[in-house]
Amino acid sequence: MQDVKLRARDAGASAPAPRPSALRRIGLALTPLLWLGPSLVLIAVVVLWPVAEMVRTSLLKISSSGVTLGDRGGGNYTDLFDEDDLVPVVLRTVGWVAGVVITTMVLSLAIGQLLNARFPGRRLVRWAVIVPWAASVLMTSLIWKWMLDNYSGVVNRVLLDLHLIDKPENWLAHPRGAMLWMMWVAVFVSLPFASFVILAGLQTIPEDVYEAARVDGAGPFRTYFGITLPLLRPAILIASIINVINVFNSFPIIWAMTGGGPGHATDTTTTFMYKLAFYDQNVGESAAMAVVNFLMILVMVLLYLRASRWREEVR
């Protein structure tokens, strides 16, 4: 009798568990959406829908008052690529982004090291560094435009007092000089964010690594390039990508300081598309320029990720 009970118990233990019903399996599969749903909806509304609307607008014929007059197919893109100023504007934009981002990252590495060091008043210095980022970009640009004024600007006054120039200069009158000054302003407002990202990266590096390097006889130069920079690669990657996107889409600096002029001589793609929409009253062509601008940003970010071999970092 006892053997029968044992065999019955063993048979029940080895029997397969009943499979959940189809509705239960669907419910289990959809459970993560309760947590991911709000984020997915936000991404769809804030990111995907504007992109889809931008592409749709680039294929339409739209009047200056915003009334849709019908489809244009690829006509807006044809008109855009026939613009004589398109190629110079695109090349200028690439140079603008590369110059600002490279200069910002080089300077932010030095500022990040400074902010990470221990010295009296460090907290006050950190607060001071973040001010240009917290201030309005438009107001910062207007202040620099006033400072560069050839009659009452402080830049001319200081250079004259130091006898570095003989007469006041109209710094924003010449396209090349104006681009250099606007790049400096873009670096000025980009430095705080990049510097604090670098600072955050520096603070994640264990002190034990530096102690081991000192025991091995590594000097400051070897320690920085052999330990600090490699361990900072994730922080540098994040700061660079965000800076590329921000500088590529930068509008207030150029518009406040030169308006993209004279003509299109200091335009980038963002100010150029604004002029297409509001000066030339061609909304569809401006939307086509926005699509091209979006694709250029994607290409530049992907090229940077490939150059930095981010996949190896993930592994």
Rank of each mutant, 00 (worst) to 15 (best):
5 K>R: 13
8 A>W: 04
8 A>T: 10
10 D>V: 06
14 S>Q: 05
19 R>A: 12
22 A>Y: 06
27 G>T: 03
27 G>Y: 10
32 P>C: 11
34 L>S: 07
38 P>N: 04
39 S>T: 13
39 S>L: 05
40 L>A: 11
41 V>M: 12
41 V>T: 12
43 I>E: 01
47 V>D: 05
51 V>M: 13
55 V>Y: 13
56 R>M: 06
62 I>W: 08
64 S>N: 13
65 S>F: 13
72 R>G: 15
80 L>S: 01
88 P>Q: 11
93 T>W: 07
94 V>R: 01
96 W>R: 00
105 M>W: 07
122 R>V: 15
126 R>H: 09
134 A>Y: 04
134 A>K: 00
135 A>G: 04
139 M>I: 01
144 W>P: 01
145 K>R: 10
149 D>V: 10
152 S>D: 05
158 V>F: 11
164 L>E: 14
167 K>D: 05
168 P>W: 02
172 L>M: 14
173 A>D: 13
176 R>H: 15
178 A>C: 04
183 M>R: 02
185 V>C: 04
190 S>T: 05
190 S>M: 09
190 S>P: 02
193 F>D: 09
195 S>Q: 01
195 S>E: 06
202 L>C: 07
212 A>L: 09
216 D>S: 11
218 A>G: 10
218 A>S: 12
218 A>L: 10
220 P>L: 05
223 T>H: 03
226 G>P: 01
227 I>M: 00
235 A>Q: 06
239 A>R: 14
239 A>Q: 02
239 A>V: 01
247 V>R: 06
247 V>Y: 01
248 F>Q: 09
255 W>M: 02
259 G>F: 11
259 G>Y: 12
263 G>F: 13
263 G>C: 08
265 A>H: 11
267 D>T: 07
272 F>V: 10
278 F>M: 14
279 Y>R: 06
282 N>F: 06
286 S>Q: 07
287 A>F: 13
295 L>S: 10
296 M>H: 04
297 I>M: 15
299 V>G: 03
300 M>G: 05
300 M>I: 12
302 L>D: 15
305 L>H: 05
311 R>G: 15
315 R>Y: 10
